[in-house]
Amino acid sequence: MFAYIVRRLLATIPVMGVVALFVFALLHLTPGDPAVLIAGELATDADIAAIRAKLGLDQPFHIQLATWLWSLARGDLGISIFTNLPVTRLIEQRLEPTLMLTLTTLIVSIVIALPLGIISAWKAGTWIDTAVMSFAVFGFSVPVFVLGFVLILVFSLQLDWFPVQGYTSISEGFLPFLANITLPSVALGMIYAALIARITRASMLDVLAQDYIRTADAKGLATFDVLIRHGLKNAAVPIVTVIGIGIALLISGVVVTETVFAIPGLGRLTVDAIVKRDYPIVQGMVLLFSAVYVFINLLVDLSYTLLDPRIRY
């Protein structure tokens, strides 16, 4: 098992290498002179030259590539053009809200979706099933920003239960943190919960029709044990896969949610960087998100071997 994990970790290196090359190409394959693009229309020749020097664009191509890869290997993502701060530092500053939002969204959606999916599979064909699945369709079809605005309108402005916008660090107290993060998590989590609930239901339906479930019933086990111990573990592989895919999807949702709820996270950082054409930041973010994605994939694969003894590594 340990050897397998090491092997899988090593296998991510070439993948990340390809991503790094792609991100490098992002800057160099864009048509025109990147320095001109970044500087904007009002820039003087001197401004452009300064940007070119800062990005190392005045160096020969192979030197640029080598420098880029070398700095990456040392964990250096370059310097932001507009703030003159290291990109890693900027990411660090914005990391907590995004990480927390992703985490709470995951928790909210899994806590909602798993029981709903299981119950609707168990009660398949009844009104409970219909109700749950209607809810899932609703979750799918309402865009995050609409739901976000509605939640703010009802729970913040009308009922005054939650603050309207913003973010409070968890280090400043758990309750204020919770007050701020709840609505964004629900807004972002809805679509995700719908996805997980549907997959859970489908996977559980499949499992509940299996012979070993009848065996479990014949032993006299309580419904809960039959559903969870005998059912859910068998149904888990597709569910975990979807949760993994969902984390990748979350990244785009996070950008929107952070905008609606004015949360100073990575999503906002990225959007601002794109608008200002702050290339080093954009490159850094693409790298970071890719790394997260590769890592989640690895976790999902590893979880398979824990969930299903028939899957060999």
């Binding site: 070993y212 009848r214 065996t215 014949a218 006299g220 086990l221 573990k233 068998n234 969930l307 028939r310």
Partner: peptide
């Protein structure tokens, strides 16, 4: 009441040995 009998007083062996056991336990 039925569950108290199942597996304790009355138990059953099924037709399909290949699929009647839970693969993950």
């Amino acid at each position: 009441e039925m569950r108290k009998l199942r597996g304790a007083e009355i138990s059953m062996i099924f037709q399909e040995p290949m699929t009647s056991l839970n693969p993950v336990l």
